[in-house]
Amino acid sequence: MAVNPATCTCGDVPEAQLLERLDEILAEYREKPGALIPVLQIAQGIFGYLPEIVLKRISVGLGKPYSEVAGVVSFYSFFTTNPRGRHLIRVCLGTACYVRGGKQVLDTLKAKLGCDVGETTADRNFTLEVARCFGACGLAPAIMIDDDVHQRVKPARMQAILDLYAAPAAKSGGD
C-alpha cells in the first residue's frame, strides 16, 4: 500500500526539476474530473512525500481550494506530508505481536533511531511507523523494513537488523 521509499527520488534530483515534472502532470490533469487523488499519488511518487510547496502548487494548478487538497491528504493515511527516509520500518502492534513483545520492540527502535512513530531519522535513513497485523502472527513479534518481514524480533537483535540497512545505501533494500 505504501510507497516504497527505496524508489523515492528525493535528495537525488534538484527540487526545481521535480517541480517541473509536477507542472507537466498538472497540465495533463487540469481539465480532467476527479484529478485530485491521482495527482496527489503521482506527486508523492515524485517527491517521496507531499510538502507544502507541492500541495499549494497542486491547489493552484487544479483550481481546488488548498483546504480541500489538505482535507484529502489528511483523510487518507496513504498520503504523508512528512519526508520519508530511505527505508520504511513498520512495527506490527496487532494482537499477537503485541502480546509477544511488539511494544518493547517499538520502544527499542524509538530509542535507537531517536525518533517517534511517524517520524524520520535525522539522516533520513529510516521512517518509523506502526502497523496492525501483516498476517504474520505465527512469526510474532514481526516488523517489516521496506518489503522484508523480520520475524521473532527481539530488542537485543535490533541493531543487527538495522545494520543491514545502514546508510549510505551500502546494503540498501536488504537481500
Binding site: L55, P65, S67, E68, V69, A70, G71, F75, T81
Partner: peptide, 25 residues
C-alpha cells in the same frame, strides 16, 4: 465558504472521530 462564497478557506480535515472543520491541516 466553498459553494456560496467560492473562497474555500474551510474544509473537513483528517478523518473519523478526529475530523476537524477548518483551514488546511
Amino acid at each position: 465558504c466553498n459553494a456560496v462564497q467560492d473562497v474555500g478557506a474551510l474544509f473537513p480535515q483528517h478523518r473519523g472521530f478526529k475530523t476537524v472543520v477548518g483551514p488546511a491541516f
